[in-house]
Write a protein that binds this DNA or RNA. Structure first.
Length: 237
DNA sequence: AAATTACGCAACCGCCCGTCT
DNA sequence: TAGACGGGCGGTTGCGTAATT
């Protein structure tokens, strides 16, 4: 079976993301969630592959992403986990709140791998699921969480980050889920049919970019403060 | 000051897996 | 049961910038 390309690449933009594209993606995901990455660019008004959008969101735009220098503890954790797990960056990132697998992978290749002796063997049992289960949730766990977090609506809503951001409670990375939920609840509050709404690309932020965004005490980001009523803001906070 | 090299990071690519029909 | 599809993951690439010559 030959797989079709993930998306029709003709006319799709590649390379670095512009602030405008970031705004569109962030606005859309924050407001509507990530119900289908492949379709998302179309609705968000982006000339990008869905995978590209997903990556950009997960690695850069997602709330609570920690950037900058790694602490000694973080580096020790990475080295230690890499010793037992190998290049399973997604699992390793699950143990480092706010760090993305891509970032950890880059950091490893540019810094940490040089410090670790190259002949250090990676245990073959790494590939054994049992040994990986150091708190690494299964995909079915994620599915269950999705079900819990997203009660049935007129159309099934999936928030795929839930599965990439593993072990939410441990990580403190449930922000994305909160985002999706908040998006839906706020939508529901608005009393209109979400799935019939056209994408409103530029109404909820100002011309200067992210100034409408803010972080609440809990680190939850809201995009709605200027566009919705006080009830929504109270809920977010 | 200009040229070259090294480095860090963002993004892309292709494969794999799970789910749905 | 097989095929189609979407999402996730790890490897790799390419660009921008800092450091060095």
């Amino acid at each position: 079976m030959v797989r079709a390309p993930c998306c029709d690449k003709t006319g799709l933009k590649k390379g670095a993301w512009t602030p405008e594209e970031d705004r569109k993606l962030m606005a859309y995901v924050t407001r509507y969630g990530c119900w289908n990455w492949r379709q998302l660019p179309k609705f968000a008004g982006l000339q990008r592959c869905g995978k590209s959008c997903r990556l950009r969101w997960l690695n850069y735009l997602r709330p609570n992403i920690k950037r900058g220098n790694y602490t000694k503890e973080e580096e020790e954790t990475i080295v230690s986990l890499h010793k037992t797990l190998g290049n399973r960056w997604s699992i390793i990132s699950g143990k480092l709140p706010g760090r993305t697998d891509n970032e950890i992978k880059n950091h490893w290749h540019t810094n940490l791998s040089k410090r670790v002796k190259p002949n250090q063997p990676v245990s073959s049992e790494v590939m054994n699921e049992d040994s990986v289960s150091v708190g690494a949730p299964s995909k079915s766990d994620h599915t269950e969480k999705n079900v819990e977090n997203f009660p049935p609506s007129s159309q099934e809503i999936s928030c795929s980050e839930l599965s990439s951001v593993s072990n939410d409670s441990v990580l403190g990375m449930n922000t994305v889920a909160e985002d999706c939920v908040s998006s839906m609840e706020i939508f529901q509050d608005s009393g209109s049919d979400f799935w019939d709404l056209p994408f409103l690309p530029d109404n909820n932020y100002n011309q200067d970019g992210y100034e409408s965004l803010f972080l609440t005490e809990d680190g939850y980001m809201s995009f709605y403060a200027s566009a919705y009523d006080a009830d929504a803001i109270d809920w977010i906070q």
